[in-house]
Design a protein around this nucleic acid. Structure first.
Lengths: 257, 257
DNA sequence: ATAAAAATAGAACGAGCGTTCGATTTATTA
DNA sequence: TAATAAATCGAACGCTCGTTCTATTTTTAT
């Protein structure tokens, strides 16, 4: 059996479009990891684990399982969530659940896989920009958009990393470090080109990353009160406020004085 | 039985000194929540739970239990840590463990209690400064010092909040929000007094808080490579670097331009 | 409509959990 | 030093967990 870790082939057929992103609405038009196709992707990328053969059944059941996992484990944690809880919440029998997974841990692995894929897409998108500043700005925007649409997924991976096999735990840490390094490199490029001024590129990079994390980790902060069924327009407004706040903050740290 | 939550009486006998803090070394001289006395405090504050009567035994055993809890749950999480793990790690029998606690959850409650107490001390300390800027700077320094000495405690509470009873969960969230509000109010004071310039005091406050959290949450970031037995001098150096970085960052956001 | 294949159901199993409790050892007191 | 109290021990209990497995139902193909 191939480990989930190895199956990551982010560029495999997924197109993220090439336009400059300026709104959540336009992001939604191109981002592949959402709606029904999200669970189709989960199904395809875990075909070695999922015993159910017909996509029609698998996609529906994976959605049930993952949605219920987010709901239950957000309050009680993945370890405390029993598969009987899951069975109750989804209305599926044990047998059905176990035809989508081979063991409980698989659920966490599938989630981790999608978040890693999303991170990979973020990186790819940023590389398309030409100017240094635009690269930074687009990285921030794309990350905020993606982590908004996939909020429960990002949240889960952050808090339940310890439920993954060690290899995947290390991979998750690595992704965060890569994110910091990537911002740091871009900032350093700007400094070298005379566009920015700072003597602590890493600190600025790190600040960006923790502010991005804060967005999906703390929906309860008054910064972005996460209501159940908030309208797209309101979401657009909030996310624009926050991305503008981050971008202005970074500009102050890099450009002023 | 009194709930752990109600027992918090931070000012009860604990003196935190009144000098301006400028180094970890000087902090260590006055901070009460460290060394042996830390576990004496744990014992006293949980006398309604701990069945062991003689402090001589209780303090030693509480230290064993909590130390082992930090070690085991840092990698596998509190839920996965069985009391048999704990028994093996501490060399204590089940009976001994259960004379310090009445149920597993008590361990988490005791830790939460100390972190809350530490947060309360931080707030008290900051209020002693006279100038606005000094209040902010001292809050940052005190928080970094305290969360360095109590790193496993802070880390545990952040990741294991969900193991606590709901009432205590809410209390933990509240403490973070209070921290943000407190910084925000101080910044706003500065703006009103004409000392600072910003149109987003909350964003700056929030940035400070997430950077402070980052310090104890991510010891593996190259920012502060957390070695097992790092010398006090090295720790002093690292913590000074980081606090200077935060303070300079805040200064740029509030003072420049 | 019938036969084959796939999906679903839920009872059953063994392992490991948190917790209890009486026996035993160690410490304190007179 | 004997008597009492406190601390420690670890086997035992009941329960819930992840997982398995066979019978049954539903879907698909002929």
């Amino acid at each position: 059996m191939t480990s989930t870790l190895e199956i990551i082939q982010p560029s495999a057929g997924l197109d993220i479009g090439s336009t400059e992103l300026t709104s959540l609405t336009s992001f939604i038009e191109t981002f592949p990891l959402q709606g029904e196709s999200l669970y189709s992707i989960v199904f395809k990328r875990n075909s070695d684990i999922v015993q159910t053969q017909k996509a029609r059944f698998a996609v529906v059941n994976l959605e049930k399982i993952l949605t219920a996992t987010f709901a239950v484990s957000a309050t009680s944690g993945f370890d405390r969530m029993s598969l009987r809880d899951l069975s109750r919440q989804t209305g599926m029998s044990m047998g059905s659940i176990y035809s989508c997974i081979s063991k409980k841990e698989d659920i966490a692995s599938m989630i981790a896989d999608i978040v890693r894929l999303s991170s990979e897409l973020t990186r790819q998108h940023a590389m398309q920009s030409d100017s240094i500043w635009s690269k930074i700005e687009q990285s921030i925007r794309f990350h905020l958009y993606a982590s908004t649409l996939l909020q429960p997924w990002y949240f889960f991976l952050y808090f339940e990393t310890r439920c993954l096999p060690q290899e995947q735990q290390r991979e998750s840490k690595k992704i965060e470090l890569d994110g910091i390094k990537s911002f740091e490199a871009q900032i350093q490029d700007g400094v070298d080109a005379g566009e920015f001024h700072t003597n602590d590129a890493r600190m600025v990079a790190n600040t960006i990353v923790v502010l991005l994390e804060d967005w999906y980790l703390k929906p309860w902060k008054t910064l972005s009160p996460w209501k159940a069924n908030i309208s797209i327009e309101q979401q657009e407004k909030q996310i624009n406020n926050y991305s503008q706040s981050i971008i202005e903050l970074v500009r102050k740290l890099l450009v002023d004085s």
